[in-house]
Nucleic acid binder design. Sequence first.
DNA 1: CGTGTAAGGAATTCTGACACG
DNA 2: CGTGTAAGGAATTCTGACACG
Lengths: 149, 149
Amino acid sequence: MMDEDASNLLKKMPIENLILGIGDVAAATGVSQSQIRYWESKGYIHSEASNDGKNRKFSYKTVLKVQQIKTYLDDGYTLVGAAKQSQRRSNYFDTLRSFFEGRFVNMAIDPDSQQASIDLGPFDPEPGKSLIAERIDDHWHFKLIDAKN
Amino acid sequence: MMDEDASNLLKKMPIENLILGIGDVAAATGVSQSQIRYWESKGYIHSEASNDGKNRKFSYKTVLKVQQIKTYLDDGYTLVGAAKQSQRRSNYFDTLRSFFEGRFVNMAIDPDSQQASIDLGPFDPEPGKSLIAERIDDHWHFKLIDAKN
DNA sequence: CGTGTAAGGAATTCTGACACG
DNA sequence: CGTGTAAGGAATTCTGACACG
């Protein structure tokens, strides 16, 4: 039932390695290509200058930033204001990732039953216990187990 | 401190809407473009035929599948075997998403302190309590609060 | 079977300019 | 300021064929 590569969880999810062309960023966010180019020229977003190619590539993090700036624009901010707001705080994705990195100790999936369990590490109110999230029949619930020394 | 759009958490993360060109899929996964085209021709993966364009576009779900097939190939499976294995079970991403959808009730981020809290809903061992994950000074810990009726 | 490559055409993206406001 | 568009060239992707094994 234990899955050997559960520890590679984050590495197995090609999110950090994702790079997208401008057309795909535009399609995903609803922001036009000319807007994206202009925002980049003003320094509100950045493209990955690394690679060999000549065409722009954007990281997934930048896609999220574009999405966020657009949200503020739709709320009535000017572009300058929207860009400033988007810089003001980390977004949900960053927070979720920090939660993963901080608390996901292990994840196991049973290949047949699709039963899954996530080890969230020590349960602070009860030291000595580990918090486990378990999926049974498509329903998630929490339980405590004795932490292994 | 409460964030009004926390309920749109998943919708705000343009992962489901992501579509990538073949070059970006190849770059993200380390699988060559000719491999990707061949795998598609054999029906192991699919491209999004929806849009107007003529060039292939792949969903993020398909990127994960490509990644998974590659992992099995690297382990020594034949392509047919790797494709079959990749179909055998849902991947980590699916499991994580099901965890989110099943248990993430709310998420709040304080714009200034970057303190964050995630409401994970009723804590099964103690009905009447809600499980909260809280980030303070970049460290996540769990606590229980009285569930609101 | 499974992948790579050369070839010529098609689709996408590039820049710099100009328009509108 | 902020975005859109037409224009011509550059970079990317397309298909069908062929090679290798």
